[in-house]
């Protein structure tokens, strides 16, 4: 009786963990669609390579973490990050667009590191 309960708990735990893995794997989105959107919307300021920005106060994006880029875009869109230019750019992006863009820029080779 008790062991049955343990097995059931274990099964539930494993189901939960595998669901979690699936959910995080689904962050890997459509990189080709991200590239198309990036060329259309982002490249003019952030550079076609995501490194050669037209102004030094704009960030390099190439190689940056996808989940961070998604948070940043989401915050620009919902207004919790205040920046006039990025607010107007992000307004036109859907959640899928932002996920694709984040995946695309993260996939590029970039100069940023964790050097301290």
């Amino acid at each position: 009786m008790k062991s049955k309960h343990i097995v059931a708990t274990l099964a539930r735990f494993l189901a939960f963990v595998s669901l979690g893995c699936f959910a995080s794997a689904s962050l890997a989105k459509d990189i080709a669609a991200g590239r198309a959107k990036a060329d259309e919307v982002c490249a003019a300021c952030h550079g076609k390579d995501g490194v050669t920005t037209i102004d030094p106060s704009y960030p390099k994006l190439a190689g940056q973490h996808a989940d961070y880029l998604l948070v940043a875009l989401t915050e620009y869109k919902n207004g919790s990050r205040k920046n006039a230019i990025m607010a107007s750019q992000a307004t036109g992006l859907s959640k899928a667009d932002m996920e694709n863009l984040a995946a695309y820029y993260a996939s590029l080779k970039g100069p940023m590191t964790n050097k301290r």
Partner: peptide, 20 residues
């Protein structure tokens, strides 16, 4: 989420971000 990598980022952008 992963904290952003900042080494190698544009100085003026890091400044703007910290001021924000």
């Amino acid at each position: 989420y992963n904290v952003p990598m900042i080494a190698g980022q544009n100085a003026k952008y890091i400044e703007a971000a910290l001021i924000a």
